[in-house]
Amino acid sequence: MAPTATKTVISAEALDLTFQTPDAPVHALKDVSLNIQQGDFVSFIGPSGCGKTTFLRCIAGLETPTGGKLTVNGMTADEARRARAYGYVFQAAGLYPWRTISGNIKLPLEIMGYSKSDQNERVARVLDLVELSDFGAKFPWQLSGGMQQRASIARALAFDADILLMDEPFGALDEIVRDHLNEQLLALWARTNKTIGFVTHSIPEAVYLSTKIVVMSPRPGRITDVIESPLPKERPLDIRDSPEFIDIAHRVREGLRAGHSND
């Protein structure tokens, strides 16, 4: 669809994941197949328990699938994790309270062994990217929730990974802040050309942000629909009132409903 979408970055084939729990095995993912191209913005949407977060964690090498094949940058997910192929943004900002914002962004850089001068340069660059340049010396508690989450995105962008995985990063924020951060995230994606995997359970958020929307449903977690968005890459906030937007949102809603009727 998009002209840059040429190279497959993430590829899942018939992925299965069953958690062994004391009472009964939980089928978290069943027969999940998906290809994500370079520069894609892919949203995973579905109700709780549909496996969207689990799938993202599989891509990140934080969970190990019990069946199927998964490659990230042509490697296994665990190899990709060890090669530091992605930045991960969690639902909570998870900043270290004993480090300043700059210090927090330096954390991955220190661990990965970047030089001091390189660290400072990168911190300045990503702080600028998320519009927090004046807050580097502040401690996390001095920032609002939205600013903390921006700082955690900056932390995930600071090192050279062309994949950004985000697990409901704006789930805990109010709608106004969320709109603003969505806009910023799109601008950031356009500037960095990263491949983004984004878990959400907000339909407008998924439709507004994505080039590809993956609709999932629970028990067992599986993909029910994959929607390639016809929306242009340039998306002002009021695109959400356009008929195309409403059409896609409708299709997503239908997909979610279809998944639920199986219950």
């Binding site: 990140a60 090498g61 934080l62 992605y86 991960y88 998870g94 954390l107 661990i111």
Partner: peptide, 9 residues
């Protein structure tokens, strides 16, 4: 927090 460190390997 522990997962975050794992993502940094």
């Amino acid at each position: 927090q522990m997962d975050l460190l794992r993502t940094y390997s």
